[in-house]
Computed example of a mutant assay.
Amino acid sequence: MSRVRCERCLRPENHCLCALIPQLDSRTRVLLLQHPSEVNHALNTARFAALGLANAELRVGEVFEDLPRLLERPGYQAKLLFPADDAQPLQAYTAAPGDLPLLLVVPDGTWRKARKLLYLNPLLAALPRVTLGEGAVSRYRLRKAPEAGALSTVEAIVQALETLEAPASFAALLRPFEALIEGQIRAMGEETFLRNHEKNRPAVPGD
């Protein structure tokens, strides 16, 4: 028999993380487009981000027929957080009259699934792209990053918002993410974790 799940965070009820999810305001609007394969993933960080931000929306699917409506937000400029040769690094908002806040569109899935979302939604692929600054290190200690600077979805959103809306802090969004990781470490045992994960962890300045 399957375990009863919290209807909000989708975690098993005895491991519900809702108490750790903040409710933060942001000038930026975040639109998360989640591939269906991520919905039941143990580390569904896109959902944590959507629940923790008042100005965010999470949509699940492969083809988003209402994408034109989702992108038409008066007072915002839509940009896709996804790498490309012509992607522009995110920068803090200025006080200039024409500097509109972003509608930051964030695909959620493996790199392969995220690219599929772009392929199936040409309007999404046509958006101007932005990227994060270099040097980010993921806190997801249970998985080796596929490449330097690779982050979970919620980590990427936190870094993006803290860049755009400096000096505001959005670190509270990471609380359920970090609690989930700590719970997984406790479940496997500290000794097993240290033996199988920490020995392969690269040195980070300031550790």
Rank of each mutant, 00 (worst) to 15 (best):
residue 77 Q to I: 13
residue 78 A to T: 02
residue 80 L to N: 10
residue 81 L to H: 06
residue 82 F to H: 12
residue 85 D to I: 10
residue 86 D to L: 14
residue 87 A to R: 09
residue 88 Q to M: 14
residue 88 Q to I: 15
residue 89 P to C: 09
residue 89 P to M: 10
residue 90 L to W: 14
residue 91 Q to T: 12
residue 91 Q to L: 06
residue 92 A to I: 13
residue 92 A to C: 13
residue 94 T to I: 00
residue 94 T to C: 03
residue 95 A to N: 14
residue 95 A to C: 02
residue 96 A to N: 13
residue 98 G to M: 04
residue 98 G to E: 04
residue 98 G to C: 10
residue 101 P to Y: 09
residue 103 L to K: 06
residue 106 V to A: 08
residue 107 P to D: 01
residue 110 T to I: 04
residue 112 R to I: 02
residue 114 A to E: 04
residue 114 A to I: 00
residue 114 A to M: 02
residue 115 R to T: 00
residue 116 K to L: 05
residue 116 K to G: 01
residue 117 L to H: 00
residue 117 L to T: 03
residue 118 L to Y: 12
residue 118 L to H: 09
residue 118 L to A: 00
residue 121 N to W: 12
residue 122 P to S: 09
residue 122 P to Y: 11
residue 124 L to F: 06
residue 125 A to C: 05
residue 127 L to K: 06
residue 128 P to V: 13
residue 128 P to Q: 09
residue 128 P to M: 01
residue 128 P to W: 06
residue 129 R to Y: 01
residue 129 R to W: 01
residue 129 R to P: 00
residue 129 R to G: 00
residue 132 L to I: 12
residue 133 G to F: 07
residue 134 E to L: 12
residue 135 G to P: 00
residue 135 G to C: 08
residue 137 V to N: 07
residue 138 S to H: 04
residue 138 S to K: 08
residue 138 S to I: 06
residue 139 R to K: 15
residue 139 R to Y: 02
residue 144 K to V: 13
residue 145 A to S: 09
residue 146 P to S: 08
residue 147 E to G: 10
residue 147 E to N: 02
residue 147 E to Y: 12
residue 149 G to S: 03
residue 149 G to Y: 08
residue 150 A to G: 03
residue 153 T to V: 14
residue 155 E to H: 11
residue 155 E to R: 14
residue 156 A to T: 12
residue 157 I to M: 01
residue 157 I to C: 04
residue 159 Q to P: 02
residue 159 Q to V: 15
residue 163 T to M: 06
residue 163 T to S: 08
residue 164 L to H: 13
residue 165 E to T: 13
residue 165 E to C: 09
residue 167 P to F: 11
residue 168 A to L: 08
residue 169 S to M: 05
residue 169 S to Y: 09
residue 172 A to F: 10
residue 173 L to I: 07
residue 175 R to L: 15
residue 176 P to I: 09
residue 177 F to N: 13
residue 180 L to P: 10
residue 180 L to S: 15
residue 181 I to G: 15
residue 181 I to S: 15
residue 181 I to P: 08
residue 182 E to F: 08
residue 183 G to T: 13
residue 184 Q to M: 11
residue 185 I to D: 01
residue 185 I to K: 07
residue 187 A to P: 04
residue 187 A to E: 09
residue 188 M to Q: 04
residue 191 E to Q: 00
residue 192 T to R: 06
